[in-house]
Computed example of a mutant assay.
Amino acid sequence: MKRQRVLAVTAASAIATALTLGTAGTPASAEILDAKAAEARAELTGKVAPGLVEELADTFGITESEAYDRLAVEAVAADLLEEVPDSIEDSYAGLWIAEDADEIFVATTDASDTNELRAEGATPVLVEHDLAALEAAASTLDRLAVDGHFGHYIDLAANTLVIEAADVEAADAVVAASGVDPALITVETGADAPEPYYVRGGDAYIVENSWRCSVGFAVRRGSTPGFVTAGHCGSAGDQVTSGQAAPGTFQASVFPGSDRAWVAVGASEPLYNQVNMYSGTRYVYNANQAAVGSSICRSGSTTGWHCGTVQAFNQTVYYAEGTVRGLTRTNVCAEPGDSGGSFITGNSAQGMTSGGSGNCSSGGTTYFQPIGPALSAWSLTLVTS
């Protein structure tokens, strides 16, 4: 995949400034982060799901002790993700975890924010564009439909809005039609066109005796039991006729626009706060959102259990069937039939598999529909016990 700036002004100069600032603040920030992480690690004792530490160690090539350290830093990042955007307001440009999970970066357009950020244990990064400006540009692109435009997302670390396109010509057409300042944009070309992970037949659940998808998470609406899944897996009224999941009926479904649905099952069917890891089970205790850079795992009926990291929030994807907004981007692999399956960080439900590109042999990009909009839109309660 080839990435390039639309203008000669490149991300390199901004990143150099950011790293200079970040390095200057690292010692004080590191001490505070270490203290917060130590507290978070102590709270994790006895609460980490069986097998989770081993999974993280295998996925990231780290020791079990380092896996605990990573979980602790991710917990601190989740707290800062709630607090920092309101604290520095208009200058906020995003938060992410370092690749080695030993630092939490917070980008800002105002150098006067740096002391406050260091005091929170974050490494400040001075950038040119605030997050609101990038999100506004992304919103403008949401209204476009250009052949060869596969989607777009905000790369926090590069402080840019990335357009994914089949080629430079398609990307140029998007930029020209949008009227967005090219200085905000980076273009990625050469990616495969994303597509929903439609079904091939098999286990998990079968819709109308015809196609297969995967269960997301067990939910209830009042006293009615059911589960959430991907919207492209079925329309309201479609029947879940067989498979590992209990038979039921799609009650509501949104696709495109979003990619969410919920299925009601029989009143006597048992619901479990578990995700099938295909080598055991993972318990679900809440739906706390994980920060960009956090570890995340996915379960699906085609490829089973795979892990990676969260790369970006609010990805817009242009499937052939229509535009889907508000997805979360990951580097976890997936394949057709994994659609609707669970994305989970630790014991926190994150969302349901939507689609992507690549496969689990060569790797790829997968997007998921965050679970929150489904729960709130349809007054659903996540099963956590």
Rank of each mutant, 00 (worst) to 15 (best):
A67M: 12
G364K: 10
V48W: 09
T316H: 03
W211H: 12
E39Q: 11
G340A: 14
S214Q: 05
G234I: 08
E269S: 15
A12Y: 06
S376A: 12
T241M: 04
G248C: 07
A204E: 12
L131A: 12
S342G: 06
P85V: 08
E39A: 15
D100V: 06
E39K: 14
V219R: 06
T109L: 05
V53W: 04
D259Y: 12
T17G: 09
G226E: 05
A218R: 05
A119N: 13
P194N: 10
S385L: 05
T189M: 02
G257M: 04
G234R: 08
G22I: 00
R5M: 01
S65T: 13
A261D: 02
T160S: 14
E169R: 13
A290R: 12
T365Q: 13
V207R: 08
L380V: 11
P124F: 15
E43G: 01
E83P: 06
R5Y: 05
A122L: 03
N276G: 09
A14C: 03
P270E: 07
L56D: 08
T365M: 12
S178G: 10
R329D: 02
T20Y: 07
Q311P: 00
F227L: 10
R41V: 02
C213R: 11
I371H: 01
Q4F: 15
G179P: 03
T302G: 02
H149V: 02
G340Q: 11
A24V: 13
T316C: 01
A42Q: 15
G148C: 04
G280A: 03
V215K: 15
E39L: 14
P270M: 08
V324D: 10
C297F: 10
S214T: 15
A107W: 01
I32H: 06
T17K: 14
G340P: 02
N314K: 14
R3Q: 04
L52D: 10
T160D: 00
L375I: 03
F255T: 08
E128L: 02
S342T: 14
K36P: 00
E54W: 04
G243C: 06
V275P: 10
E89Y: 08
I97G: 05
A377G: 01
A137I: 06
V174S: 01
S348M: 04
T224P: 05
C233E: 07
Y68R: 11
S242T: 10
H152Q: 11
F105L: 06
G293E: 07
G358N: 07
